[in-house]
Design a protein around this nucleic acid. Structure first.
Lengths: 381, 381
DNA sequence: ATTGAACATTGAAACGATTGAATAAGGCCG
DNA sequence: CGGCCTTATTCAATCGTTTCAATGTTCAAT
């Protein structure tokens, strides 16, 4: 009368093992059990429980009966068996380039939440920014027959292989924070140009004219458009950008290197002895690094120097001073990516035609304590 | 002569839809394809590719042949079909109470990394601190037949249901940051008592004698032992704890409420006009809130007041000032939890006996910029 | 009366792998 | 030379669902 783990060691070499597996309700109850127990056939049970098209012919009494029995027995469909027939795994691969980037958590939350609404399950993968790991995970996800793939490409590098492999296997995919070349993969990004504009506009409105910039690494897709937005606003508002106050972060594989970079580069800016009353950093981490350097050098933020970041990662509101930044709607982006791929999945199911889409979400300026109006200074132009 | 999905769309009502699905190598290649293509039977292919026991009888030439063909065809085993027979899903459920807690990211990383080593895939679930969501996810994970479950119970509430359901279904489980009543679930925690001791010891060594405390919420399992460690050290070192300098956070369902709590409670402590030269917070977020309040009130950290946190969440090193704290080895804890459940999985596979385990990991003091030696004051005892 | 929908249910064939039992051929022994 | 072990491979059942095609009903319409 053992159940479960209790009698397991009896299986040893040559003992007269007592048949214990048949005891408790340890056995998984299959659809056949429900069928037997309710007096109908497995087919009927399946039709009823899935509310399949044929279900409209099934007598209401039958339906009720079957549903009752299923519940009483605690029947749980076997996802694997189901998949084997229906080709639907009810899972989606969610691949992060590097989850340690604070950018990722809200995105993950958004993805998870949207999938949950559709009763899909996320299979989590983290490439640690390594190509081979990325490929291995891709392999694993394909083996698990995820119905779709979402790639959160917050940091460096892409893989063309991805595109090929996926479109070949008819798996809809979407990237967040990156755009694939070609026309196979949908994408969700923030409108970086608008964001850059927003940030600089804010500083400009506050009266800042001598502004330092720490640009993002060249390899990051976000860097160029943000800078473009900055240049455009500078141009349209007649603001002059002093090249001596512009630095660009080097490419790096560590998403958290921005902090260190912001720190070092701000030190360097300070050494140049060119006065600036505000600093615009590539992202929040960079901004935090900058603030650290400024504070250490005795430059008070925001009194002596305003700092603005980009992203609005969760810690930005907790830092001291709390950070003025351009918010990416991270959770909404995760959400949208799910909706996109789900649409693709459904299209595939219904043999409908479907085309990829590229979204640029609107950023939003979040004003906190790291910026304030420029103090009027005699040497200002 | 159609195979598989090719002719399916002809089922449409009455349009002569052109069969475009049949173009590329879209069709998934099955084991049968490898068998046909190599001239052996599916059985042989399976045996070779899995290196099953019987493989020792297979001729080396045959093996090579099959492996070649499999690779050339790009054969990828169908995880579902495989599972259906072998009862192994090669997936593990990873359930978070609330992923927005910064505590979770490193744990997730640790779990992911360990699973990756074993070619297991994590199915991610986030209960959003809601019981019904927790239960629904549990249901979904069971449907997907995860081989094990890891619950990261960083924040409030537990569910007894969990224990029952899992042990009934013979799924090994482990919790991180929580202990289940009963003897069904392994757990991994930090040694909170030692941590509490470590933190206070540090302050004491620095010469602090008037220390304020913000204790954790009663419902959190960590709160009591941390406090116990504090009391013990206070006792053994002859430190006096002034009840007027001790506050306890209220229970809350938001893991990030600690910041707000730390802020408010610190304001309150300041209002009491009882001098203190150091503050020990329940966790890092609370400490950050406290620092914010202190700074706002003109109390400089660490010059006028040292602050120490607990956990060493990623943002603690980035805050200004960077936070002295007690580090939980979060990644290692995730790792360990995986090893524990994998051990259980293997035991189950080999019908071995196996018993749960409870681990207390050693915390480590991380000294950063938020603490410094107490200034000698005339009124000190 | 016969037909033919609409209704209600079921049999049985997949889905793609795994695996215990079976087959077959060679080699060795007494 | 018949039996038996070893080597090499295959048969066929099975896992738990889904779903197409088939089988009876019932009942209104010809």
């Amino acid at each position: 009368m053992h159940i479960g783990g209790s009698g397991q060691m009896m299986m040893q070499s040559e003992n007269p093992v007592l048949v214990k597996r048949h005891s408790g309700k340890n056995q998984t109850i299959t659809m056949r059990d429900v069928a037997n127990s309710s007096g109908f056939s497995p087919a009927t049970v399946s039709i009823v429980l899935n509310n399949a098209p044929l279900a409209r012919y099934i007598a209401p009494t039958t339906k009720k009966r079957i549903e009752e029995v299923a519940k009483k027995l605690g029947y749980r469909p076997n996802a694997m068996a189901r998949f084997l027939r229906s080709k639907r795994s009810h899972s989606v691969g969610v691949m992060f380039f590097d989850i340690t980037d604070p950018f990722c958590t809200p995105v993950l939350r958004g993805i998870e939440n949207a999938l949950y609404q559709s009763s899909y399950v996320p299979i989590f993968a983290d490439a640690h920014n390594q190509r081979n790991r990325f490929e291995r995970y891709l392999e694993m996800l394909l083996e698990h027959h995820v119905e779709a793939l979402i790639v959160v490409a917050n940091w460096l590098f892409v893989d063309i292989q991805l595109v090929a492999d996926l479109s070949k296997r008819n798996i809809t995919a979407a990237t967040i924070g990156w755009e694939m070349p070609g026309n196979d993969v949908s994408s969700v990004m923030v409108d970086n140009e608008a964001g850059g504009r927003l940030a600089l506009e804010h500083l400009h409105h506050l009266g800042h004219r001598k502004i330092a910039f720490i640009r993002g690494p060249k390899m990051l897709i976000d860097s160029a458009p943000r800078w473009k937005g900055i240049l455009k606003l500078a141009h349209s508002s007649g603001l002059e950008i002093d090249p001596a106050l512009v630095l660009q972060l080097p490419d790096s594989f560590d998403p958290n290197s921005g902090f260190e970079g912001g720190y070092r580069f701000t030190e360097e800016l300070l050494q140049r002895k060119k006065r600036f009353t505000a600093l615009m950093a590539f992202d929040d981490l960079t901004a935090l690094g900058a603030i650290r350097a400024l504070t250490k050098a005795g430059v008070k933020v925001p009194e002596n120097c305003s700092v603005v970041g980009f992203d609005d990662v969760p810690l930005s509101s907790l830092s001291a001073p709390s950070l003025t930044t351009v918010r990416q709607p991270l959770e909404a982006m995760g959400n949208l990516a799910v909706n996109i791929v789900m649409e693709g999945v459904n299209a595939g199911l219904e043999k409908r035609d479907w085309s990829i889409s590229r979204h640029k979400m609107n950023p939003e300026l979040v004003i906190r304590d790291s910026t304030q109006a420029a103090v009027l200074s005699s040497s200002d132009d």
